[in-house]
């Protein structure tokens, strides 16, 4: 059986497992959704007080917010296995995966598809729809494709971050909290336009962890707004590719960590 269909078989088991705890699943999804709404509430509070954020309106920021949270919710659903990978290492469950004649990445991804994150996805999509309606985006097929491309790029990027985080747990489990800076911290950053940040932070999120590429540039393309960096629409549309590049790099990091895990047996 090839990798793709094995992945879906693994996921089917994960879904069946979650369905055994239906009541808590519903509650948790609602909880997740509430978190997303409330965070947007924080941005609304500031707009209510100050009127604008540089040249941006609340609805425009809603586009950033919606896209990045769609990506984040999807990546948390898909990449759950890597997100909680340190637990597998701690409990020794990862050894079991090494005992199976299959790619470790495939197996870890197949550990869990966390359904309750879809509650968050729904909220993020709702905000995205509201924002694009309020901004008055003139949707074309191309723009819609760029939107999907941006969300996909974000998913790949976040999964890449989670893979790096999982790799770190081969060395240290305690130190993992700092990865939150890039997942949750990165999401918080990317729900605002990149242009408002100071140079060093901006560069960090363009060149080290390219969250700006999967979110800021595509929104410029969709809204046709003037870019302070003076990028071209072609660049803006293709920028989310950075997410895929990041994922590739993270897979190399993973491979390195794996060999190190096998030689130290932490």
């Amino acid at each position: 059986m090839n990798g793709i269909s094995l992945y879906f078989k693994l996921i089917r088991i994960s879904v069946a497992s979650q369905m055994q705890y239906r009541a808590s699943f519903v509650i948790m999804s609602m909880g997740m959704a509430l978190v997303t709404v409330i965070e947007f509430g924080g941005i609304w509070v500031l707009f209510d007080r100050f009127g604008s954020l540089q040249q941006w309106t609340l609805a425009e920021v809603g586009l950033f917010y919606g896209i990045i949270h769609c990506s984040f919710a999807l990546s948390e659903a898909l990449g759950r296995g890597f997100d909680i990978f340190h637990r597998y290492v701690q409990r020794g469950d990862f050894d079991r995966l090494l005992l199976r004649p299959r790619s470790t990445v495939l197996q870890v991804l197949g550990q869990e598809l966390q359904l309750m994150r879809f509650g968050r996805l729904a909220q993020a999509m709702a905000i995205l729809i509201w924002a694009s309606w309020t901004v008055g985006v003139q949707w074309t097929v191309l723009k819609f494709a760029v939107l999907l491309f941006a969300i996909a790029g974000g998913v790949l990027l976040f999964i890449g971050i989670m893979i790096v985080q999982a790799t770190v747990s081969f060395w240290t489990i305690q130190g993992l909290e700092f990865m939150n800076s890039f997942t949750h911290g990165g999401t918080y950053m990317a729900q605002h336009p990149l242009s408002i940040f100071d140079g060093w932070l901006r560069n960090f999120f363009l060149f080290v962890i390219p969250l700006g590429c999967v979110n800021y540039f595509p929104v410029l393309f969709i809204t046709g707004k003037q870019d302070i960096f003076g990028t071209t629409p072609l660049f803006q549309a293709l920028a989310p590719l950075a997410g895929a590049v990041f994922l590739l790099v993270s897979l190399y990091v993973w491979r390195f960590g794996l060999s190190r895990y096998q030689s130290t047996g932490s």
Binding site: S52, L53, Q54, S181, H184, G185, I196, F197, L201
Partner: peptide, 17 residues
């Protein structure tokens, strides 16, 4: 890290309104 991002956001809001 979080603090920095939050501070930068609040600064820009203060500068905008």
């Amino acid at each position: 890290f979080f603090g920095f991002v939050m501070v930068m956001v609040i600064r820009q809001f203060f500068f905008s309104g």
